[in-house]
Design a protein around this nucleic acid. Structure first.
Lengths: 145, 145
DNA sequence: TATTGTTATACTCTATAACTATA
DNA sequence: TATAGTTATAGAGTATAACAATA
């Protein structure tokens, strides 16, 4: 097996191991992974358009409408028309949504933290740099067919 | 922001960047990501039980039945009763499935390869080791709440 | 003409729990 | 009693394309 395959497989296995424990925790907070992604992305911001939210979460616009509808029905996010462009909305967290963000996001980090506890600061930096470098490759459009 | 958060965010961003381009390609092969995962897991094996397949792909048994049903309907996988334990099946690729595996898996690797082309063997090894170490942390059950 | 977001369609995945058959 | 896998249920995400309103 070639080197890049081994790296790729390890990326997938590592992420999926994380995803499994992360999603299990997210479910206990009565959110789906996609919903948590939206709430986490909107947290500590002034809100953003659907287009921007879709770019950050990698959720396509058709799907996004449905996810936002369900969050709006629970008064977690709100849509507000903006004057600058009447095709667009500002999507932002309601007070309930901000509460949820503050509780769940920190709770989620505390849930995750122990898994990192034995890694030194230097090791963390190493891993981070490696991942950043790899991500830049994935996002380099000149590689895309 | 703490060190581990930065590393975590970079893991998520890196994987999602990969997942996006990977899934886009998988769709062009008329497979869903879950189906590709099954086919890739069964490729180059003698087949395995649902339990084992579920453990490897992280698909829960109820979901797995449906995914396998759809693959079996297209004659990509087959179920075969085994004598040793009549509750269980051997799930394996049909000849069509093996063809599909040989075509799509290699095709998928060729699609992915260019994204890694500028990373040296040493750099790949570094990234791989970092990811392995992190995965072991995630899989260390003593951290789980 | 291009862009923003919604609607419509059809399907797939998802978790969960109850169930059957076997061990 | 425990395990392997199916069935049933209800909901959520997914891609895609057509659409309306606006730029």
């Amino acid at each position: 097996m070639e080197n890049f395959q081994i790296t790729l497989r390890e990326l997938v296995r590592c992420y999926q191991a994380f995803e499994q424990l992360s999603n299990r925790h997210i479910r206990t907070m009565d959110l789906t992974p996609a919903q948590f992604d939206i709430v986490a992305t909107l947290g500590n911001t002034q809100g953003m358009s659907c287009r921007e939210l879709g770019e950050k979460t990698l959720i396509t616009k058709g799907t996004l409408t449905g996810v936002l509808d369900r969050l709006e029905a629970r008064d977690i996010v709100r849509r507000e028309t903006i004057n600058a462009d009447r095709r667009s909305f500002r999507i932002f967290l309601s007070p309930t949504g901000e509460d949820l963000f503050n509780r769940t996001f920190n709770q989620h980090l505390e849930y995750i933290r122990p898994f990192f506890s034995e890694l030194s600061a230097q090791k963390l930096t190493e891993i981070t740099c490696a991942l950043t470098e790899l991500r830049h490759k994935f996002q380099d459009q000149t590689n895309a067919i």
